Computed example of a mutant assay.
Amino acid sequence: MSRLKSFTVSACLLAGQIWPATAANPPEVDAAIVFAVDSSTSIDPVRADRQRLGHAEALRSREVVAAIKQGRAGCIAVTYFEWASVGSLRTVLPWRLVCNEAQANAAAEAIEQYGDTGRGRSRGGRTSISFAIDAASLSLRAWEGKAAKTVIDVSVNGTNNDGLPVEVSRRQALAEGHVINAIALDRSEEGVTHDLPGYLHAAVIGGPGAFVAVSKDPADYVRALRRKLVVEISGLDWPADAATSIYVR
């Protein structure tokens, strides 16, 4: 990452304070997961709500809470930020431990309350997936706990059209040992690609077991997101009857 890009990402993260205070005994978790959520101009109120409410509902679901409790450490760490163009980043949920139902509900409520609604504020911008990956990598680097797995979880409805080529940022994140997964809000990007999941598969995701999750229809987004989280936390295979997923070959 260039010095200018690194400075830009660092400034955004410092503004959001998305890492926890230093602890004498750093927590151990089964997975540290960064939810990097698209808030670019193409994210209208319907898509914004789908992401905000979908992540909240998935996080507080019985399936996800059960997967957390069944892990070796019995805890995960999560943070949630929204991104658009290079330099456009807003932290919704700073790093937080989730080890039980009450903590999952508290994290979900914060996302539900403070996440992007697509209404009534200055928002939007281009789509820099590379910036989102760089910001997520820096956040994981700054987190002071120990994680069996580190995951960058990108939710997006378009292709990278701002900042570095996404392959450059992906290569750096994979070199640091992170897994990059994605969930496609739409199956296509009008005027750009008729196969958004295929693009995400080819250019964005990476690492052991990485995948793109695609809901069968907008109403199925929450189910796809919930199952994606269970897979990320538990390491289990994607259920055969789940919403479509594309795995790294």
Rank of each mutant, 00 (worst) to 15 (best):
Y221K: 02
A135L: 15
N157I: 01
A107Q: 02
E101V: 07
P218Q: 00
I33C: 04
G74M: 11
P94E: 07
Y199Q: 03
G54E: 06
L200Y: 00
S88Q: 15
N105K: 13
V154C: 04
A202G: 01
S85D: 15
L229M: 14
H201L: 13
A73K: 15
C12G: 14
A24S: 11
S42P: 13
K5D: 11
I18M: 11
S122E: 15
A67W: 06
R96M: 14
A15E: 09
L225T: 02
G207E: 00
T127Q: 07
G158V: 00
G209L: 04
F7M: 09
P208L: 03
V204K: 00
Q70A: 15
I76M: 11
I18T: 05
N157W: 00
V86I: 12
A32Y: 04
D237T: 12
E144Y: 02
N160D: 12
D162A: 09
E144V: 05
I111H: 05
P239K: 09
N157Q: 06
K5L: 12
A84T: 05
G71H: 11
R141P: 00
S130M: 08
C99S: 12
A84D: 04
A210E: 01
A175H: 09
L4A: 12
G163T: 04
R123A: 15
A67Q: 07
T8D: 07
I180W: 01
A142S: 14
A175K: 11
R60T: 07
M1K: 07
S130A: 15
A136N: 09
D162H: 08
P197R: 03
H201Q: 12
I76L: 13
D153M: 04
R223L: 09
D30V: 02
I68D: 02
I76Y: 05
S2K: 07
R141C: 10
P208N: 04
D237E: 12
T244P: 09
A84F: 07
P45F: 13
R170Y: 02
R141M: 14
L14V: 07
A15G: 13
V37Q: 00
Y221P: 00
V78L: 13
